[in-house]
């Protein structure tokens, strides 16, 4: 679909340079705003990759012919529309200068026909639309095939329009379009399938490389991690189960500290002497709702269970409160 210089009139070439230049200006602005210096070498190497991959023939089963992947759609699915567009410009410039694929004067037309539709329409409209509610294999295949077919159809139609406006052919517009569109429909289908195969492979191997995958990967992680409400619910349930039921089976034997005190002092509770100790003991006796994990003056199982639940809830509440307090202070630090 690369247009040669001979097929465009100077006025058409100039107009298309202006249109492509506008898209390029927008893309440059966006890339600069993103401020990712790491992206420039990635764009360069990816451009070289598209170039190299387009030189490989992929056999189309049952036809005996071959095809290659769709550069614009592929680049946009990995780099995003703006960076993909700039990379495609580089690819087209090198193609026209080194391999006579397209012309220097027709570069504006070629950038519009292949890079603009492929990157902006393919990624910004179709890819986004398909990936709106997450990324799956089927969606990637659908977006790739639909993107390649649609963008190639639009590109082929633009070629017919530009050639007609340049007045280089005596072919009627209808005949020219009728010759261009069906062949590009078949090419688009094959290119879409090859592009889909590669993108699905990337999705399986390293999904983080795909454009827009950060959102769905983060969501997936969040789903894996469980929501905030879910976490609180599980903790509460665990507190009830452990405090209410498992505490019934709590051992009556001394814990580690009590055991070691018994060995050293021959008693589990040390007797403290003095007024201060006596006063504090009285306060504790009055305020303790559940002394020794049971109702006051009662040794029933319900008392033990209830004290477990209440204690657990209190601990969770304190933890949550401490977390919020920490977040509050961190927020203040950031603001400062």
């Amino acid at each position: 679909m690369h247009m040669a210089d001979a097929l465009v009139a100077p006025a058409v070439a100039g107009t298309m340079y202006v249109c492509s230049g506008a898209a390029m200006g927008y893309s440059i602005k966006k890339v600069r705003l993103a401020n990712e210096p790491k992206k420039i070498p990635v764009m360069g190497v990816m451009g070289a990759f598209v170039f190299a991959s387009q030189m490989i023939n992929f056999t189309i089963p049952g036809t005996g012919s071959s095809g290659h992947l769709c550069g614009g759609m592929m680049l946009s699915a990995i780099l995003g529309p703006e960076a993909g567009f700039l990379t495609m410009f580089g690819v087209l410039l090198v193609q026209c200068l080194l391999f006579a694929d397209g012309g220097l004067l027709a570069l504006g037309c070629n950038v519009w026909n292949m890079a603009f539709y492929g990157c902006f329409l393919g990624a910004m409209v179709l890819w986004k639309l398909f990936m709106k509610k997450g990324m799956t294999r089927k969606k990637i295949i659908g977006a790739s095939v639909a993107g390649c077919v649609l963008t190639l159809q639009l590109g082929a139609f633009s070629v017919a329009l530009e050639t007609l406006a340049s007045g280089v052919t005596e072919l009627p517009f209808g005949v020219f379009v009728a010759a261009m569109q069906p062949i590009h429909l078949a090419i688009g289908l094959v290119e879409g399938l090859i592009t889909a195969a590669v993108l699905v492979f990337i999705y399986e191997a390293r999904p983080e490389l795909l454009w827009g995958s950060e959102n769905f990967l983060a969501e997936e992680k969040r789903e894996g991690r469980m929501s905030y409400k879910g976490t609180v619910g599980v903790l509460l349930a665990a507190a009830i189960v452990i405090g209410g039921l498992v505490s019934l089976a709590a051992s009556s034997k001394p814990d580690g500290l009590e055991w070691s005190m018994e060995r050293i002092a021959k008693t589990a509770e040390l007797e403290a002497e003095g007024r201060a100790y006596e006063a504090a003991g009285k306060v504790q006796e009055t305020t303790a709702l559940l002394p020794d994990y049971g109702w006051k003056n009662s040794s029933s199982a319900t008392g033990t269970s209830f004290s477990g639940i209440l204690g657990g809830s209190l601990v969770i509440g304190l933890c949550v409160f401490a977390c919020y307090l920490l977040r509050f202070f961190r927020g203040r630090e950031k603001k400062e």
């Binding site: 440059i28 420039i40 700039l86 990379t87 580089g90």
Partner: peptide, 14 residues
Amino acid sequence: KELVAVVFLIYRYL
């Protein structure tokens, strides 16, 4: 410069 750098790198790594 970003655009020229991309063209330059494509050529280098081609």
